[in-house]
């Protein structure tokens, strides 16, 4: 058993490696709290990709053209792939995909709050791509330089695909913004509903963010919530204006002194309400994941049973 002194030496060496820009790999020693922080963050990230398939996936059968249907199919397929990379990276920290997924189904693990908002129109599919994936990129590009190697490497690949989705989402909204008056109204209505939830994707303000300090010291988080939120707003507002749409924030203004857009007050009460499970879709999202899992049980059992028969060889198969 490690003595306190020994543990302190290990932690010091660990912090030196991180400060020196070295990557931490699965077989390396790491503080338990580092492992747990990453497990929580990566599981939440993987679940978000998986749950995130639902609001967009529900529009596949209703996509208004065959090419948009194909784009959307390819996108949700990418998201399932992202969940797969992230669950694999998570397994390198000693938490199996099934354990992590069990925590989601039991309601013990979180996923991105924004997927508890409903996708009510076709324009929402564009907003999810343009705004939500845009926010995800701002969040995730720094993560491709985070201190844990498997997570950093997964993020490199994920970010490439996410940037593609982001452009597709923008293109979808642009088509609506340049379309008939009814299509423009559809786009503006969707923007009104998705703007604030997206701004909240970056999490609570810095002064209220409990894990931030430690995560930054460990190189798991490279920029603060508010820094990333500002970056997103600065890059997205000009895109909104370019489309001739309006940001649903009367207090939004450009500050020529700082070179940044300043936004109005964020309704953190709503944020907390949705996180607590009181959003429009929290119950439905979880119920949907549980239903698929339960209804697929006979399939997974049959696959395991068949694999066991094969492993036992022809003799075993006859006896079975």
């Amino acid at each position: 058993m490690a003595t306190t002194e020994h543990l302190e030496a290990l932690e010091q060496a660990f912090q030196q490696r991180i400060d020196g820009g070295e990557k931490i790999e699965p077989q390396d020693w790491m503080p338990e709290a580092y492992r747990r922080t990453l497990q929580r963050q990566m599981a939440q990230h993987a679940h978000s990709e998986y749950v995130g398939m639902l609001p967009e996936g529900a529009w596949i059968t209703r996509a208004p053209s065959l090419s948009r249907k194909c784009i959307l199919l390819a996108k949700v397929q990418d998201e399932a792939g992202h969940a797969q990379y992230l669950y694999s990276a998570l397994e390198s920290l000693g938490l199996s995909r099934e354990q992590a997924y069990g925590q989601l189904l039991a309601g013990e693990a979180k996923y991105l709050n924004i997927f508890n908002y409903p996708a009510l129109s076709w324009a929402d599919v564009g907003m999810i791509g343009w705004l939500t994936d845009g926010a995800a990129i701002v969040n995730q590009v720094p993560l491709s330089r985070c201190s844990y190697g498997p997570y950093a490497r997964a993020m490199v690949r994920i970010c490439q695909e996410e940037s593609f989705h982001h452009r597709q989402g923008f293109d979808l909204v642009r088509r609506l913004a340049e379309g008939t008056p009814a299509q423009r109204r559809m786009a503006q209505d969707a923007l009104n509903r998705w703007w604030w939830p997206t701004v909240m994707v970056f999490g609570p303000p810095d002064e209220d963010s409990v894990h931030s300090q430690r995560s930054m010291r460990w190189g798991v988080k490279l920029y603060s919530n508010d820094t990333l939120r500002q970056k997103f707003v600065d890059q997205t507002v000009p895109q909104v204006l370019h489309l001739g749409l309006t940001v649903p924030d009367p207090d939004l203004r450009f500050n020529p002194d700082t070179g940044h857009y300043e936004i109005g007050r964020i309704d953190w009460d709503e944020f907390n309400r949705v996180i607590r499970g009181q959003g429009l879709c929290n119950r439905e999202r979880l119920a949907s994941r549980r239903r698929s899992w339960d209804e697929g049980a006979w399939v997974r059992e049959a696959a395991a049973c068949h694999a066991a028969k094969l492993a036992a060889g022809p003799q075993g198969e006859r006896d079975a």
Binding site: Y50, L54, A80, Y87, S292
Partner: peptide
Amino acid sequence: GEWCGHAPELEDDIALSN
């Protein structure tokens, strides 16, 4: 396309949408 997000495993979600 109706299967999206509802398959027994992630791998089959990917395969069916593929």
